[in-house]
Computed example of a mutant assay.
Amino acid sequence: MRIPRIYHPERITPGTEVALDSDAANHVGRVLRMGPGQAIQLFDGSNQVFDAEITQADKKNVRVKIVSGEVDNRESPIHIHLGQVMSRGDKMEFTIQKSIELGVSLITPLFSERCGVKLDAERLNKKIQQWQKIAIAACEQCGRNTIPEIRPAMSLEQWCAEEDSGLKLNLHPRASASINTLPLPVERVRLLIGPEGGLSADEIAMTARYQFTDILLGPRVLRTETTALTAITALQVRFGDLG
């Protein structure tokens, strides 16, 4: 069986013994049914991975001894900040999960004129917490040892107006430039992905005022979740560590 990778929210030191949090303990003790003497790996977001051995386990409590630790850098050389206008249902969860597998560094959920998601402050806060858990699970699965942050949601213009030294990109079906025509090198990208109905004309004009470059992915119209993953993949192939 593959050795499970578990995120631990507190800093880890080799030679110590730690108790897993309730979610991790439930997964190890109840779902995987692991017991004392079995090996797991932990990571704490510090870009390190730690070999550990279970010393105590039941369905609610799991303790492990930290055997050793080492730096294990799997981060992309390109920092991609994804600004994703929120999509309905599980599409947003899918986008978050897969974009983190592809190496995105930071995600900000956005509201726009045609955003189909309407949430009050309490429900939105719960969504952010849920999306952060999805980010953690994606890192556990794909081998990343740092956890990308899911930032609080904000308006599209607020996000576009933030200071950023990187390249700013907006996907547009009538753009003339493509990712392959962007000049090398690129180390930071702020990538805007619009809603299912697209950005309005006023919003597209607004992105231009904030020096966003319109780019085209191809001749076909893609769904919002497909657009995000296609653009991230193309950026990683050209500037990052895919391919």
Score class of each variant (00 low, 15 high):
R33W: 14
R33A: 01
M34D: 10
M34T: 02
M34Y: 14
G35Y: 10
G35N: 08
P36Q: 11
G37R: 09
Q38F: 06
A39F: 04
I40A: 05
I40L: 15
I40E: 10
Q41D: 08
Q41F: 07
Q41W: 06
L42G: 01
F43K: 04
F43G: 03
F43A: 05
D44E: 12
G45K: 11
G45N: 10
N47M: 09
N47T: 05
N47G: 11
N47P: 06
N47A: 14
Q48E: 15
Q48F: 11
Q48M: 13
F50I: 13
F50H: 13
F50R: 06
F50N: 13
F50M: 11
A52L: 03
A52H: 00
A52V: 02
E53D: 09
I54A: 06
T55K: 11
T55F: 05
Q56G: 00
A57V: 06
D58N: 15
K60T: 04
K60V: 00
N61W: 14
V62E: 07
R63F: 14
R63A: 12
V64I: 06
K65S: 15
K65D: 10
K65Y: 03
K65N: 12
K65A: 14
I66R: 06
I66N: 08
I66P: 07
V67K: 14
V67I: 15
V67Q: 14
S68D: 15
G69F: 13
G69L: 09
G69A: 11
G69K: 11
G69W: 15
V71I: 05
V71L: 08
D72H: 02
R74P: 02
R74C: 04
R74G: 02
E75Q: 15
S76W: 10
P77I: 00
P77N: 15
I78N: 08
H79K: 15
I80M: 12
H81C: 05
H81R: 07
L82F: 11
L82R: 06
L82H: 13
L82C: 13
L82M: 12
L82T: 03
L82N: 12
G83N: 11
V85K: 05
M86Q: 07
S87I: 09
R88W: 07
G89Y: 04
G89I: 05
G89P: 04
D90W: 11
K91N: 08
K91T: 03
M92F: 01
M92K: 02
M92W: 02
M92S: 03
M92I: 00
E93D: 15
F94E: 12
F94W: 15
T95G: 06
I96H: 03
K98Y: 00
K98H: 01
K98T: 00
K98M: 02
I100D: 07
I100N: 09
E101D: 08
L102R: 05
G103F: 00
G103C: 01
L106K: 15
T108D: 03
T108F: 01
T108G: 00
P109E: 13
L110P: 04
R114I: 02
G116S: 11
V117I: 10
V117D: 09
V117K: 05
L119Y: 03
L119T: 00
L119W: 03
D120E: 08
D120M: 07
D120A: 08
